[in-house]
Amino acid sequence: MEDIKAYIESGILELYVLGDVSHEEKLEVEAMAAKHPAIKAELEEIEKSLELYAKANEVDPAENLRDRILNSLVVNLGDDRNFASKEKAPEPKVIPFEKPKTTNIYKYAFAACLALLIASVIALISVYNRLQVSNNLVASLQSQNQKFANTVSFKDDEIGVLRDRSYKVIRMGGTPKSPDAGLSVAWSPVKKKVWIDMADAKMPANDQAHQYQLWAIVGKTPVSLGVFDADTTSKDMKQMQSIASADAFAVTLEKRGGSPTPTMDAMVVIGKF
């Protein structure tokens, strides 16, 4: 079931509907659709969505475009007199009989060609507009797939922190300034990587003028590991700047953007190994 879900979320079905797949991929999609009703149903939903999207974004040709085409044809082609023979007729020696009037076939041929040309231009404009809509949709799908891939990669890194035994996890406790505050830090001396767990954080909300700043205490020297906001809606871990050694970690509330040195009376949490 997971393989079918992953196949649907890969984006191959959207490309199949748009005709942007190889012959082998086309046969593969058709085989999967025949084998799995879920894939067939997803194909039908994509086709309906594309049709609705195209209709909603259909653009009629501008009226001034039709006028420009007609005026250009009239100016370039001229009237029926352009088709008349330029050779001077020989002087008749006798009085000719008056010929019966005939219908000018060129006039009807010109009108038919003009109508066909206008219809072709309108059809090309419609096809171009639909192609633009399809291209925009493909670009949007590719962007969504890239965001999904980035999210999956980030989640893999988070899971790797939990499984990697080189990481040390410390729960920093609150100070007298904020006794109920708390924040967990995961640090790997081997990989020199530091993560903070935002899902488990209990930090007072900071305003727009301030940010929290994480410090690593190396000996007696504080080293900045970056700033962050107390986002209570985030359930992710946040990677901070790297450090090879540390005796303790602490967080202070500083002006937005961080400070070169910690404000000791603004310390919110601290934790030692």
Rank of each mutant, 00 (worst) to 15 (best):
S72P: 03
S259L: 09
K40D: 11
S153G: 14
L27M: 09
T252G: 07
I122C: 00
E24A: 05
A112M: 12
E44V: 00
G182I: 05
E158R: 01
D265Q: 13
K272E: 15
A201C: 03
I122H: 00
A56I: 03
D20P: 05
D20I: 01
A111D: 12
T151V: 12
T252H: 14
M203K: 00
V138R: 15
E254Q: 08
P222H: 00
I243T: 05
T233Y: 06
V251C: 13
I8H: 04
E63Q: 12
W195K: 02
D164S: 06
I118Y: 00
A56H: 08
V17P: 02
P176E: 08
L225T: 00
I12M: 09
A119E: 00
T252I: 09
N129V: 07
S242M: 13
D157P: 03
I95R: 01
D156M: 11
E45M: 02
E58I: 15
D231P: 03
G11H: 01
Q132G: 13
S143G: 12
A62D: 06
L141H: 09
I270P: 00
V194D: 11
I95C: 04
E2H: 10
G257R: 03
E24C: 02
F148Q: 15
I12F: 04
Q208F: 08
E9N: 15
S143V: 07
P204K: 02
N76L: 15
H210T: 14
V59T: 10
G19Y: 07
